[in-house]
Amino acid sequence: MILVISVCENKLHEEEFVKPVTDLLENYKVVHYSELKEVKEDKIIICGTALKDNSYLDHLDKFSWLKNFKGKVLGICAGMQIIGKVLGKELEEDKKIGFIDNKYYLHSFKVKGFGDILEKNNFKGVLFHPEIRNKEIIKEFVD
């Protein structure tokens, strides 16, 4: 079972940022970070959200448990930013919209000192959206 965490403030955005990810999975459950009580799964995907939705940055305390999580975590876009903050890194403004060098980007911030990918121990973050034209990244994480 894979735990898919939504950070979308508006439910409608989940169709765009969560469903394309869960369409690639077989055994999963989706929980919004604000409703997360306990984590039994050993693999987690934290999905991205809309360009104008930065609400998760005001609730980073809800992700502090991640620091001691022993399973594997894949953070997509906002998910990478959350991983960065949990690991003590800073974010900086970096707006990028569109399909560039075969990767689809849609973000307002990046993790300072990192490019598209952040890998540390059990954490992997990707700043672009692998659910668009780079689905193998999600499939490899799941396998």
């Binding site: 104008k52 919209i97 569109g98």
Partner: peptide
């Protein structure tokens, strides 16, 4: 991409509820 950029320039949200749908 083009619609996202227009929405960004107008500071409004952009929703694509069919995005990547089979």
């Amino acid at each position: 991409t083009r619609i996202q950029k227009i929405c960004d320039s107008l500071d409004i949200h952009c929703f694509n509820p069919l995005w990547q749908m089979d």
